[in-house]
């Protein structure tokens, strides 16, 4: 089945991409790898007249490490993030989460920036980046803007991206030495499914940070569960209480993969497993 027709623009600079998007407003959409945009267009959820490809713009697909942490260009394909020696050694939680997206051929095309801009609640990278306290850099007609990832996801498939803006880079701070982590995803039916529930945890001497996916309109930080663990630490009783608190603070939907009630139960189970199995 052919896609509905559109005019494809292939800008060579970010400025050109931003002005095309600003010029065509609601009629225009950016595209990166295409793994989300193409199905959205094919099945009629989006019908843009203008599609602006970000893929040919140089310099947007680099991974670089500095004293502050890690920076990943938004156009970096997921397979390169998951396979990067630096990411695997220093941010193994991120490598694990990104390497869990869909299936290998999707990770060859799909990009990190595309995954986040799509704002899918059951994203693999999103809970990991929430627990890692990442931030995203956007550029648009009014210049650059940095948004903490904790404020980036705003609603069901909605991210804080203003008209004409594109996501340019993801920044991830260093993880303190001695920190422990876990990433678990539960797909009820089959490996290629989006997770029904996924859990990312970073535990440092200052506290525990928990990202949850698939169980609210967006990926979320489980702040109440984190607060429960703040005093007692990871004792068996505190872990049980944190799992209950997380199940309470999420706001799941019912769909083909599972009911809201089942998802709440699975948050309890998988957060407990994540907290008892930190690496």
């Amino acid at each position: 089945m052919r896609l509905p027709p559109f005019q494809l623009h292939r800008p060579e600079t970010l400025q050109e991409a931003v002005s095309l998007l600003a010029q065509h407003g609601e009629e225009a959409r950016p595209i990166a790898g295409g793994t989300a945009m193409v199905p959205m267009m094919r099945f009629g959820f989006l019908r843009p007249e203008h599609v602006v490809s970000l893929k040919g713009i140089p310099g947007l697909d680099e991974i670089s490490e500095s004293d502050d942490g890690l920076r990943i260009g938004a156009l970096t394909p997921l397979y390169r993030v998951a396979g990067s020696a630096v990411v695997r050694a220093q941010w193994p939680l991120l490598a694990r989460a990104v390497g869990s997206v869909a299936t290998p051929a999707i990770r060859n095309s799909g990009t990190l920036g595309g995954n986040l801009s799509y704002a899918e609640a059951a994203s693999d990278p999103a809970p990991a980046l929430l627990a890692l306290e990442a931030s995203v850099l956007l550029t648009g007609p009014e210049g650059d803007r940095t948004v903490p990832i904790t404020g980036f996801f705003q609603g069901f498939y909605e991210a804080d991206i203003r008209p004409g803006e594109v996501l340019v880079e993801v920044s991830i701070p260093r993880i303190p030495a001695g920190a422990r982590w876990s990433y678990l995803r539960f797909a009820a039916r089959s490996r290629e499914d989006k997770p029904l529930v996924n859990v990312a945890v970073v535990a440092t001497s200052e506290g525990v940070r928990i990202g949850l996916g698939g169980v609210s309109p967006t990926a979320i930080r489980a702040r109440r569960a984190e607060a429960v663990l703040q005093g007692p630490g990871l004792t068996p009783q505190a872990i049980d209480e944190a799992a209950d608190a997380a199940a309470e603070e999420c706001d799941p939907l019912s769909d083909l993969m599972g009911t809201a009630e089942y998802r709440q139960d699975m948050v309890r189970v998988w957060l407990r497993r994540a907290l008892t199995g930190l690496q």
């Binding site: 790898g33 295409g34 793994t35 193409v38 199905p39 094919r42 099945f43 397979y79 869909a102 299936t103 290998p104 051929a105 999707i106 060859n108 095309s109 290629e192």
Partner: peptide, 20 residues
């Protein structure tokens, strides 16, 4: 929509979905 894999081809040596 990239789920079934029937359209998998190699582009510059890497497997991708031709439909996407």
């Amino acid at each position: 929509e990239g789920v079934c894999g029937a359209c998998t081809v190699l582009v510059n040596g890497r497997a991708v979905r031709a439909c996407l």
